[in-house]
Design a protein around this nucleic acid. Structure first.
Length: 416
RNA sequence: CGGGGCGUGGCUCAGUUUGGCUAGAGCGCUUGCUUUGGGAGCAAGAGGCCACAGGUUCAAGUCCUGUCGCCCCGACCA
């Protein structure tokens, strides 16, 4: 992509209506813009990051046998009355009446819808276990939206649902999801603490949360700095590690994932039964597994930045690489830049070419702010010495070498 | 919803206390010249229902009333 043909509205100063680091950097680097409180447009760069995160989630979900589908955002309120949750979460539902007088809501979550769907198609134990997931927009009338994408009224969630015949089947799926979540967050460059949690309005007995430590986090968690192992306790304000007796530390965290063993709450309420091998009708045993996808963008930034801007972890970087020709009026520089641009793209890389007629300083500042993993700088020296300069955004290390060697370095970085 | 703060060109802000001439600055934008490896310099321009509505006054960005919006602290959650 050519920078001049894209929409990347970077800001030099910190916008007044952003306090948290992630929110400031998202606005400054042109990832998102607010439409109203808690509702954001994803600009081209923001969407690229979002798509990268979703790609990782899809691969990990598919790898543990989950199948993707897409459920409606529009839902009849009557369905919620059947599970009783129309009252439980009445105030977070965004609801209205359509022209036929039907009471409708914009789905804040999808347990009812998926259970209703599965109920009509699962009749036998032979069809189980089954794991389904979607990546979809949720709508919640939040009491107080804040921190940009961290608490939004319209946000993107990955929600998965498992259906089993027995508890051990649920355990298996739960463990598989737990492991998949670890991999997802790891690949996205996130440090995560896991904690046992309240099931709250979701129901069920067992649940775990995946918390990303960050200064701007809304939740506080206790963890053991010695064991590192996620020994986080939510809600308590003192205590010591059960294993090594070290005092626990308190950190602010952003909740990114929450998984639940639901049991039969929804299947019983909505009549999602199957026939077991003895011919008996039994309610399906369910689990549900959520990740705040758009919230992850904020958390990744909160954990990966420096004074110059964002430092995208490799796999979520909006582009693999940005090329900075330092003087667009210099034919030699520009022909090298466009040649490299074409070559890298032909090799399957996502490349941004900063073809703006800006001074070097502006390009350096903007490139650092955007946080794309790799930068290739092409200036007078590059032409004179027939070299290229490669900079790794994380650590800001620069190497100057002939093109073939730089290409090799790029390949190593991306595949390594 | 309770408590606090804010609203003036695309962005950051001054001006409001104590009402007074055509509403300012920096950045950004346009044009020209000079510059050219870490947010350039000079010159000339464009861009504002001062959040909105009503009121007080000879006169309102400034005072009064109401409304809306945004941010921060609390309950809620991915």
């Amino acid at each position: 992509m050519l920078w001049s043909k894209d929409l990347i509205p970077t800001l030099r100063q910190v916008p007044q209506d952003a306090e948290s680091i992630s929110h400031q950097l998202m606005l400054r680097s042109g990832l998102v813009r607010m439409l109203m409180a808690g509702v954001y447009s994803y600009l081209p760069l923001g969407l690229r990051v979002l798509n990268n995160i979703q790609g990782i989630i899809r691969r990990e979900m598919n790898a543990c046998g989950a199948s993707e589908l897409l459920l409606p955002a529009l839902q009849p309120l009557e369905l919620w009355a059947r599970s009783g949750r129309d009252k439980d979460i009445a105030d977070v539902m965004i609801r209205f009446t359509d022209r036929r007088g039907r009471d409708i809501c914009l789905g804040p979550t999808h347990e009812e819808v998926i259970t209703e769907l599965v109920k009509n198609h699962i009749v036998s134990y032979k069809q189980l276990p089954l794991v389904l997931y979607q990546i979809q927009t949720k709508f919640r009338d939040e009491i107080r939206p804040r921190f940009g994408l961290i608490r939004a009224c319209e946000f993107i969630m990955k929600d998965a649902y498992s259906f089993d015949t027995d508890e051990s089947g649920l355990d298996n799926n739960y463990k598989a999801m737990f492991a998949a979540y670890k991999r997802i967050f790891d690949r996205c460059g996130l440090n995560i603490l896991t904690t046992e949690a309240d099931s709250g309005v979701m129901g069920g007995k067992v649940s775990h949360e995946f918390m990303a430590p960050a200064e701007e986090g809304e939740d506080q968690v206790l963890y053991c700095p010695e064991c590192k192992a996620a020994r986080a306790l939510k809600g308590a304000d003192k205590g010591e590690c059960a294993d090594c007796k070290t005092g626990l530390k308190k950190v602010n965290t952003i909740e990114l994932g929450h998984i639940f063993k639901l049991g039969t709450k929804y299947s019983s309420a909505l009549g999602a039964n199957y026939i077991d091998d003895k011919g008996e009708q039994k309610p399906v045993i369910m689990g549900c597994y959520g990740i705040g996808v758009s919230r992850m963008v904020s958390a990744i930034i909160a954990q990966n930045n420096d004074k110059d801007g964002i430092i995208w972890p490799k796999e979520v970087s909006p582009y693999h690489l940005v090329i900075l020709p330092l003087d667009t009026t210099d034919g030699n520089i520009m022909s090298r830049a466009t040649e490299l641009y074409k070559e890298l793209r032909a090799g399957g890389l996502e490349v941004l070419l900063d073809d703006r007629d800006e001074r070097a300083g502006v390009k350096f500042k903007d490139a650092d702010l955007l946080g794309i993993s790799l930068q290739v700088v092409i200036g007078r020296e590059s032409v004179k010495n027939d070299t290229l300069e490669l900079k790794v955004r994380r650590g800001q290390n620069k190497i100057v070498k002939p093109k073939t060697e730089i290409l090799e370095e790029i390949r190593k970085f991306i595949n390594g």
